[in-house]
């Protein structure tokens, strides 16, 4: 049994090992994510970025190792407990928007809030605000099929941010976007994280996008390779106030 993780880490993992049907994806990764920071996980395709995000968020159970969130263990939680944790504290943006096709943009954004028991009015107001912030307020009453991919992706970002989760996991969120839209979406993600003290874990293979991160770790073949040296607290605070 290990000691509890350091207090200033909102998310903390030690020695996690995960394989998909025998193919090793993560081979012993230890990582800590501080509260309110933007952490970029870089690496080529197949390096284990998505698996790492899945393990940290409790979407995938780890084979070995520990994952802690806010000083409570995630790796020992039951399936139901992990679902509840994801619903109440985590938000996701994937490389595909994965919207519910029969719901309008606003309903899609309001859905996580409704699912966690928020009132109808509060959920729809928050949804409208986030759609406004992401420049898709004009399409609030449209269905995903009527929109273009970049608009759908913005709606997916709004959906992840609207419940103000403690940690937002973004797995290659800019994959379907053009260069300008990429910058805008990531700027919004990063600034939302800073203004609302959200923690953002961003997986990307685009080296240009690392500039939005406070700290970067690099993965290769399931192992950490890159600069993992943590930024001093003062520096992180400086970037947070930027």
């Amino acid at each position: 049994m290990s000691a509890a993780p350091p207090d200033n880490d909102v998310l903390w993992a030690r020695g996690i090992v995960k394989s998909h049907h025998g193919t090793p994806a993560l081979r012993g990764i230890s990582i800590g994510v501080r509260e309110g920071e933007v952490l970029a996980v870089t690496g080529p395709r197949g390096s284990g970025k998505s698996t790492l995000l899945g393990c940290l968020s409790g979407l995938l159970p780890v084979d070995e190792g520990e994952v802690w969130f806010n000083s409570s263990p995630v790796h020992t939680l039951s399936r139901l407990g992990r679902e509840r944790l994801r619903r109440d504290r985590f938000g996701f943006v994937g490389s595909e928007p994965h919207l519910v096709p029969e719901l309008t943009a606003r309903e899609n954004v309001a859905l996580p809030l409704l699912l966690s028991g928020a009132g109808h009015k509060a959920a729809y107001t928050a949804a409208a605000e986030w759609l406004e912030r992401l420049d898709v307020a004009d399409h609030a009453k449209r269905r995903p099929a009527e929109l273009i991919q970049s608009q759908r992706q913005r709606i997916a970002v709004a959906r992840a941010l609207a419940p103000l989760p403690a940690v937002v996991f973004a797995d290659d969120p800019t994959a379907p976007l053009h260069r300008e839209a990429k910058d805008q979406v990531l700027r919004i993600l990063a600034s939302a994280a800073r203004s609302h003290q959200l923690t953002l874990v961003l997986a990307t293979h685009d080296p240009e996008l690392v500039k939005y991160a406070d700290r970067t770790v690099a993965l290769l073949d399931g192992r950490l390779t890159g600069p993992v040296a943590p930024v001093p607290r003062g520096a992180a605070a400086l970037t947070a106030g930027r």
């Binding site: 994801r86 996701f92 919207l99 699912l115 966690s116 959906r159």
Partner: peptide
């Protein structure tokens, strides 16, 4: 199937 998995990922209970 895709929609169901999206909803489950959002934290919707299977019962829902």
């Amino acid at each position: 199937r895709d929609v169901s998995s999206t909803l489950l990922r959002l934290g919707a209970a299977p019962r829902l």
